[in-house]
Amino acid sequence: MCDSQAEAVCAGAPAPPLAKPRVIPARDPPTLQLARWYAATIPTSHGGILTRALAGPCPLTALHHVKRIRRHPQDAAALQILVCPVPDGEGLPEGVSAIVQEHSLSLSEVGVPELAPATRADWAGWGAHWPLTWRAPDPQLQPEHVALDPAEETAMRQHLAAVVVRADACGANVCAVVDPFTGAFVDKVLACCTAAPDVHPLQHAVMLAVEAVAAGQRARLQQEEGGSAQDGCPKRPRLAEDIMLHGAPCPYLCTGYDVYLAVEPCIMCAMALVHSRARRVIFCDADAAGGALGGTGGLRLQAERSLNHHYHVYHLARACGHA
């Protein structure tokens, strides 16, 4: 740690200009890929019968978002029904070919969007190939969950600039844990890590910051309770992000806090922030070698669905012209 040194060194250092915040989503939004399917033109009266008949041998299990039937583009009195995927080389599946023969269907090839659209605009556009049903996509991909209002973005820039200035002065990564409801540095958590052999390998900036937050909360809780050691623990709500608004001494771990980093965290630090229940992780420099949040397109811990917490990740690169 080198808080006091950094304070002295970077007192007059100018803040580096930062690019616009870029959200690194857990998953990239789907792109339009067309699967080749056989469709048959049928009279409107046969729609129900054939839909039920085809549900057995060829259900649309992988294509939940696709409608089985559409009105024929050229003939208002006819329908088109999806029969089965275009087989590779061999003939039609047994159950399907029986239905095709029974109703003497003539098959033509159509393209069907393989992935469900993530936005209403995509849904409308992709629907030109084949009609799709609209389903609300993964909330993590919803723009309103990750969009910033101008005040938030300004605060984000200020906090990150302070962290970057400090990191440049120290020559090591810096982590700040920020309570966005008050806009102040929580417990003045600032830590630097260096890779010198006399420093412990686990003393990364994030680990020190998480430890420091825990120590601060421990002290505050003991103070609040006046040292009354009760039988067992007083319960704290686990997941309430608005807990600060209800006058509780502190949230569960880092719930609702934003974490600012000069350099993208490694897998150890990224997972420590999952354990800490951080709300957002914001970093400046991507780390191609060890970064775990997809700064350069590699590993993305926030995409791991099996974990019990997920934070949003923002990347504010240095604006052009600055190393």
Binding site: P201, L202, H204, C266, I267, M268, C269, A270, M271, A272, V274, H275, A292, L301, E304, S306, L307, N308
Partner: peptide, 24 residues
């Protein structure tokens, strides 16, 4: 992932565990 990352950072030779934890 945090502890495995820590073990990597400390350059351990091996990690041996008992029960699997499929989620974490």
């Amino acid at each position: 992932a945090m502890c495995a990352g820590g073990a990597l950072a400390a350059r351990l030779a091996a990690v041996v565990y008992g029960a699997r934890s499929p989620l974490m």
